[in-house]
Design a protein around this nucleic acid. Structure first.
Length: 756
DNA sequence: CCAGTACTTAGGTTG
DNA sequence: TAAGTACTGG
């Protein structure tokens, strides 16, 4: 059968429409990836040269999978010539190729978020600003969104509106920091993630011949997950597509969940303006989920005001209702989900791959990990601290980075004294200051103390020079020697290997560190071997790839038989027969931060929609009545999102015995008005009431206005005012010796001295 | 210069 | 709670 016959009518139309501007709005589970794949295969069958195709995906993994699937249709040799990847990976390659034009070395480093923040921190320190008003992560966020909107440092400083905003936020130096940050990165030959898009725009704006070249190379452009593109990405596509206007964007406004990093739904609206005679296709038939799940999801998204109308439907069976489970604590939530999985897996003998636990925040994984481990259920936690962010990996990579680009200041700072070579903080500080004064890089300074005198004692200086000599010796081999032998040599002669081996008998964590480094090295070995004898894959080649890799790229599919634990964000695009959506509580999901604005709340709701539509057969929502947060137990209310689902698709269960016991012990009998196994929606509300009462009465710090209290540092005082609830509860206290102070109770550790 | 200790303070998602 | 930072004495 020809592959196009595997598509339904609207899918097929979208796949066959090859010329002109096309927008495909694809509901969840409507076979979007399949359309993209077949569309590209169809293009190649119609004699379109793969070299002329640019396909931008959201993750590297998606790109790889799609290349593979297209290869299986049209042949791998053809498929490998398609330019396919994330915006970041495709354009980092283009930037490397043209780096000299914009004042970067072609082996520029890519700074990750940690690196960027560390640079910013340094700048704030250098400017002698208070790092509480200028929090590195805030500053970084502000710079990032400026870049995503293509606002240059100069434009930032001149823009009156921005100036006013920063002044009102009492951060008038923001523009100066932004400017200095850009300079520092450039001096270090480094780009951050946002720079990859920002400088691509600069390149295409200032070098028409470059733009012209890529416009004619990429005659056909496809963009997946279009709803999650930001302005910088939008403009790149617009410029590239300007010559031929063969552009196809695929997305679903209902699944836009990345506005926090600049994604802009307006790109969809702009598309209509930019290409007025575009063709719109809607994919509305869902092939993934049961009717109950599809309908429940529809009832959720209906509450959002901002959306493109579409009606997702399915021919699949009704299936079971969505289960809602309540547990007393977060740990019990972990145990109950683990036992559900255990039971179900045992009964149907399905694979552990069929289960996913989805949560809003990474830190929620803990209770599920513990519970699953106890039941011997294999699991894998996705996201969180990635392999490439681990200290030991970053340390070794820093040496590699230095070998490729010694001006990389973050890498230099990281390893100049690791392993210990008696080069202390003060000396490093002096080097940084010197580099800034001489307007050169730290590396240049340490290479030539005659040209750049620094006030450091001679012993330290000679140790620094020794270090520089070592780096130079690595540097000389980075483009010639094969990746693995150089990597191994660096690991050994830097002293990192010895350091890790010596630490090994300290404990299991140290052993793991060593194993991680071994894993990295074996990955490099694999990479080395994939090159050929004459022209080996070098460490420089490896470093070009590595900065943009994520954990998902590491995964070996054959090893996969485990329950997946991940955030909802990282579940985008995936599907699982059984989904457990946990932590369905107010202030957690929807997140507390989202409650201030309608658009933020709508994004949370879209996130909820994404979560529910991951489920194929069964979906379970769970919430805990109390949860540990920063070492304190706080009480929680069920999420408003549970109420928002049409109750016809819900089933309230309190199946597990331990849950019932837990509840009655804490006095929740009143909530179970609807019988043992089923509760109706109103009973959920009554439960909320109970929860609320609990939260006000069970507060351990029962402090009221007028109380005399004693504080660890301020001594005795009298409470004059109270504000906030729960963890935010604050008391204003008058201390005779220190004046009036407003203090967060959960940190204050007050002693109540009632009867004085 | 360095290691060990006391103290502070997170609030969220990612290439 | 846990991680990261600031401080202090060797």
């Amino acid at each position: 059968m020809h592959f196009l016959n595997e598509l339904n009518e609207s899918q097929r139309k979208a796949a066959e429409h090859l010329y002109g501007a096309t927008m495909v709005i694809a509901g969840a589970g409507s076979g979007k990836t399949r359309v993209l794949t077949y569309r590209i295969a169809h293009m190649i069958e119609n004699e379109i040269d793969p070299f002329n195709i640019l396909a931008l995906t959201f993750t590297n993994k998606a790109a790889r999978e799609m290349t593979e699937r297209i290869g299986s249709i049209v042949g791998a040799d053809e498929a490998k010539n398609i330019t396919m990847g994330t915006f970041h990976s495709v354009f980092s390659k283009i930037l490397r190729f043209n780096a000299d034009r914009i004042g970067f070395p072609n082996n520029f480093t890519i700074y990750d978020t940690q690196d960027s923040k560390s640079v910013i921190k340094d700048i704030i320190k250098g400017f002698k600003l208070d790092d509480k008003t200028y929090k590195p992560s805030n500053v970084f966020g502000r710079i990032s969104s400026a870049k995503n909107n293509l606002i240059s440092p100069e434009a930032y400083c001149q823009n009156e509106e921005i100036k006013l905003e920063d002044q009102q936020a009492r951060r008038p130096e923001m523009g100066r920091i932004y400017m200095s940050y850009m300079n520092r990165c450039q001096k270090s030959g480094a780009m951050d993630f946002d720079d990859l898009l920002y400088y691509t725009n600069v390149l295409m704006r200032d070098f028409p011949e470059v733009l012209h070249y890529y416009q004619h190379k990429f005659k056909y452009i496809l963009v997946d997950e279009y709803q999650d593109t930001n302005y910088a990405q939008y403009l790149i596509i617009k410029k590239l597509a300007a010559a031929y206007e063969n552009i196809c964007v695929v997305g679903d406004d209902a699944q836009s969940i990345y506005s926090f990093r600049g994604a802009n739904i307006e790109n969809i609206l702009n598309f209509r303006k930019d290409y007025p005679d575009f063709t719109l296709y809607k994919l509305e038939q869902n092939y993934r989920s049961t009717k109950n799940i599809v309908e429940a999801a529809n009832s959720i998204i209906k509450k959002n005001k901002d959306q493109i109308h579409k009606s997702v439907w399915t021919e699949n069976q009704n299936g079971n209702k969505i289960k809602v489970v309540r547990t007393p604590t977060d740990n019990e939530e972990g145990r109950s989900v683990a036992s559900f999985i255990h039971e179900k897996q045992g009964k149907s003998n399905c694979s552990y791959n069929d289960f996913a636990v989805l949560y809003r925040t990474n830190r929620q994984s803990r209770s599920f990990e513990e519970a699953l481990r106890k039941l011997n259920i294999p699991y894998k936690v996705y996201g969180g601290l990635s392999f490439y962010q681990r200290k030991e990996i970053k340390d070794l990579l820093a040496y590699f980075r230095l070998a490729a680009n010694p001006n990389d200041e973050e890498a230099l700072k990281r390893v100049i004294n690791y392993p210990k070579r008696a080069i202390g903080k003060t000396s490093i500080e002096k080097l940084i200051v010197a580099a800034n004064n001489y307007t050169t890089s730290m590396w240049e300074v340490i290479c030539d103390f005659h040209k750049y005198p620094v006030d450091i004692n001679n012993g330290t200086k000679s140790r620094i020079s020794e270090f520089a000599t070592m780096i130079k010796s690595f540097q000389s081999e980075i483009n010639t020697k094969d990746a693995f032998s150089l990597a191994e040599r660096i690991a050994r002669s830097s002293g990192i290997m010895k350091e890790l081996i010596d630490a090994k008998d300290k404990g299991p964590e140290e052993v793991e560190r060593f194993q991680n480094v071994e894993e990295l090295l074996s990955g490099i070995q694999e990479f080395s071997n994939s090159g050929d004898e004459v022209d080996p894959n070098t460490l420089a080649d490896f470093m070009l790839e590595v900065a943009l890799l994520t954990d998902a790229d590491q995964e070996k599919p054959e090893e996969k038989n485990h329950v997946s634990l991940m955030t909802i964000h990282s579940s985008k695009g995936l599907e699982f027969p059984n989904v457990y959506l946990v932590g369905m509580e107010e202030n957690l999901f929807p997140s507390q931060m989202s409650l201030h604005s309608r658009s933020d709340l709508e994004e949370e709701r879209r996130l909820f929609y994404v979560a529910v539509t991951r489920a194929m057969e069964s979906c379970t929502l769970s919430y805990a009545v109390s949860r540990f947060l920063w070492g304190q137990s706080i009480s929680c209310e069920p999420s408003r999102f549970i109420d928002e689902i049409d109750p016809n698709y819900l089933e309230f269960s309190s199946k597990s015995k331990s849950i019932n016991r837990g509840l009655s012990m804490k006095g929740f009998e009143g909530a179970r008005t609807g019988g043992l196994n089923k509760m109706t929606n109103p009973s959920l509300r009554s439960l909320k009431e109970v929860t609320r009462q609990k939260s006000s009465s069970s507060n351990e710090q029962d402090i009221k206005v007028g109380y005399n209290v004693e504080h660890k540092t301020f001594g005795k005082g009298k409470v004059t005012h109270m504000e906030g609830l729960g963890a935010d509860q604050k008391a204003t206290i008058f201390f005779p010796h220190h004046g009036s102070k407003t203090i967060l109770l959960r940190f204050a550790n007050l002693e109540i001295l009632n009867d004085e």
